[in-house]
């Protein structure tokens, strides 16, 4: 109960702060303190935004969102699958953790030209690069999750007649859920980043393309409007996954 109050109060505080910030910004812009070319007033950005919507912004939103979600599912399925596979052999697991750590630390954008050379510049390339950006995180989280499953719980379930599939779904997957959901949240951010970078690099549509277009033509108001839309999408997806985390985590709270 106190938790809930805390979080609504936090939300109110955050919204209040944002309003104050925007109002100050608006004021400074109108007073001419800020240059309109580089820091247009929020009202100007908003009207640029509504022009964008009228001009078909949602088409680009839909494209980028589709790429992000497909990349997310792809990375999740392949990442968990590979994580499970690698964990089946202790030696392989040990070697692959080293390799994955390397993959985690190297900037993914270095591989973008390679993706274009191999896959081309279409939507499948955006999806593939998005998935690639978060793949290592999910494989790693899966392997960490598996290693942390209590073997006694597995023995207990087996003694009560659980078959392989039930041991997997009712013990392994459930034990790993907190780790996996947290990884999924990080993966989603990486998916968004990956897809946007791929769109900014080469494309004719999508939010990343728009960012690149308005940036290169010095149209700061629509540029900031697009960035605001991307931010809202990012926050929404993040909150959705956090909601899933809280839902399955209820047993941790209690009295």
């Amino acid at each position: 109960m106190t938790r809930l109050l805390h979080s609504t109060r936090d939300a109110q505080l955050a919204v209040g702060l944002l309003v104050v910030l925007l109002a100050t910004w608006e004021l400074l812009a109108r007073l001419g303190v800020l240059t309109p070319e580089t820091a247009p007033a929020p009202s100007v950005i908003a009207s640029a935004g509504s022009d964008l919507v009228a001009g078909g912004l949602f088409f680009d939103v839909r494209i980028t969102l589709t790429y992000v979600l497909v990349a997310f599912v792809l990375a999740l399925v392949l990442g968990v699958g590979l994580g499970l596979l690698l964990s089946s052999w202790p030696l392989v697991a040990q070697v692959s953790v080293g390799f994955l750590t390397f993959l985690l630390s190297v900037p993914k954008s270095l591989f973008l030209p390679l993706f274009i050379l191999v896959i081309g510049i279409g939507g499948d390339q955006k999806i593939a690069f998005g998935a690639f950006s978060s793949f290592a995180v999910i494989v790693m989280a899966t392997m960490v999750g598996i290693a942390s499953v209590d073997p006694n719980l597995v023995a207990m379930a087996r003694s009560q007649g659980a078959r392989r599939r039930e041991v997997f779904s009712k013990i392994y997957l459930r034990s790993m859920m907190p780790t996996l959901l947290e990884a999924a949240r990080i993966a989603m951010i990486l998916n968004i980043t990956g897809v946007l970078i791929a769109e900014m690099y080469v494309s004719r549509q999508g939010l990343g393309y728009l960012v690149n277009l308005y940036g290169q033509t010095f149209q700061v108001a629509p540029l900031l409007a697009v960035i605001a839309v991307i931010t809202v999408i990012g926050i929404a997806l993040n909150e959705l996954l956090r909601w899933c985390e809280r839902r399955q985590d209820r047993w941790r709270e209690g009295t």
């Binding site: 209590d150 006694n152 023995a155 013990i171 459930r174």
Partner: peptide, 14 residues
């Protein structure tokens, strides 16, 4: 055959 393990071995999420 039923087994009761040393540290209760309950599923914490249930």
């Amino acid at each position: 055959v039923a087994v009761a393990f040393q540290d209760a071995c309950l599923l914490p999420w249930r």
